[in-house]
Design a protein around this nucleic acid. Sequence first.
DNA 1: TAGATTGTTAATCGATTAACAATC
DNA 2: TAGATTGTTAATCGATTAACAATC
Lengths: 215, 215
Amino acid sequence: MMNPKAISKQTLLRLPSYLSYLKSLPEHGCENVSATMIASALGLNDVQVRKDLACVSKKGRPKLGYVTEELISDIESFLGYDDLNDAIIIGAGRLGGALLSYEGFNEYGLNIVAAFDVDESKIGTEICGKKVLDISKIKELCKRMKIRIGIITVPGHSAQKVCDILVDSGIFAIWNFAPVHLKVPDNILVQQENMAASLAVLSAHLAESIKKNEI
Amino acid sequence: MMNPKAISKQTLLRLPSYLSYLKSLPEHGCENVSATMIASALGLNDVQVRKDLACVSKKGRPKLGYVTEELISDIESFLGYDDLNDAIIIGAGRLGGALLSYEGFNEYGLNIVAAFDVDESKIGTEICGKKVLDISKIKELCKRMKIRIGIITVPGHSAQKVCDILVDSGIFAIWNFAPVHLKVPDNILVQQENMAASLAVLSAHLAESIKKNEI
DNA sequence: TAGATTGTTAATCGATTAACAATC
DNA sequence: TAGATTGTTAATCGATTAACAATC
C-alpha cells in the first residue's frame, strides 16, 4: 500500500494475536477464514476484527471471508516479521539471560546479537552463543553494526543511565523491562514491559473475587 | 473506604508507576508531592493523576499537594502489596526460572511457592530454593495451600491444557506468558503478558523511523 | 435464490483534557 | 494577599459497537 492509513495503537497490539490464531489453524480445510471466526476465537467483536484487518490486508470476500495464507503473510510483513532487526540487550542477569536464550524472537523479526553488562565476572562469557561484552563498548558496536533496538534488563536504579548511553549510541527504540519511567528525546520509542502493572491487575481482581466469595 | 468507586483498568495500570516514582523520591525534603510533579515526571496529564489518586487515597491539599508517605501506603494497600499472595508457576524453563529467581516480586505482594514441569530431569530439583514438582501434583497442592494465582510459562501449544488444570484446581487468576489466547470461565482473570504485542509496537515504530530518515 | 459475510456510516461508550471555582 | 494547587463539571477525543446496504 502506498498510503497506509494511520494505524491505531490498539489495532497494532491486536495484530500479533490474530497472527498467532491464524497460524494455529490446521493447514487443510482452512483456506478461508472469516472475521467472525477470528473474533469468536479471541473473544473480540467481529466488526473490530474486520476494521483491523482492513488496515493491513486486502479486502475479504462476502460469504467466504479472507484467504488465510494471504492474511498471515500480510500481517507478518506489516509487523516486519519477515526481515530481522538486530538488537542488543543490556543486563545479562537472569531476565536478560532468559531473553537471550529465547529462540522464538527470530520468528518475530528480532535478532539479539550481543549482551552487555558491568559485572566483570560475566564479561567475556557467552550465553547461548551470544557474547557478553563490557558496557563501555555499546556505542562502538551500535555504530558499527547499525543496531537500532536496545533491550534494558538492568535493575531500576541504573536503567536511566543505560538508556542515555543507548540514545547516545543512535538507538531508535528501547524495550524496557526495568520498572522505571525512562526519559528520552521525542523521536525515540520506549516500549515499557510493565510486569508491575500486570501484577496490579491480577491482585486487584483477586482482592475482588475474595471479597465476593467470602461475604 | 466502604464504597470505593469502580476503578478503571487504565487507572489501575498507572498506579504502579506512581508508586515507583514516589518511592524514588529522596526521604527528606519531599514530605509533600503534587499531582503536577508526578505528572510531569511521568509524562502524564496532571488532572489525570489527580483523578487517579482520588480513587485510592485521601484528598490532597490545595497549594501543598499530597502527603508522600500516605500516598505510598494508600497505593500499596490498594494494590494489595502489603499482604502476600501465594502463586505457583507452571513451566520451569528459562523464563520460568527467571521469574522464580526474581526476588522483587515479594515487593509486589507475590510469593511464588513452587514450580511445576513435565520434564523428568527437572522434577525434584530446586531453583532458587523453590521445588520443581510433577505437573500431576498441581491440584493437590493448590487445594492444600489455597493457591489462587497461577503463572504459565510453558510453550504455546500446551498452555491451554495447563490452563484447564489450573482452573480445575481452583485458581482465580492466571498470569499467562505463553503467546496464546486462553479460554477460561467468566469469573477467572487471565492477565496476558504479551511480548509479541510489545515487539509489534517496537518494530512498527522502527519501520516508520527508518522510512522517515531514509527518504 | 437465500444466507452468511463483507465494508461503511452513524451511535455509543469511556477515557482524557480543558475550564473554573474553591482553598490553603 | 497572591499564587499554586486542588477537585469537579463540561467539552473533546478516540475507540468500540450497532445498523445496514452491498456482495458472493
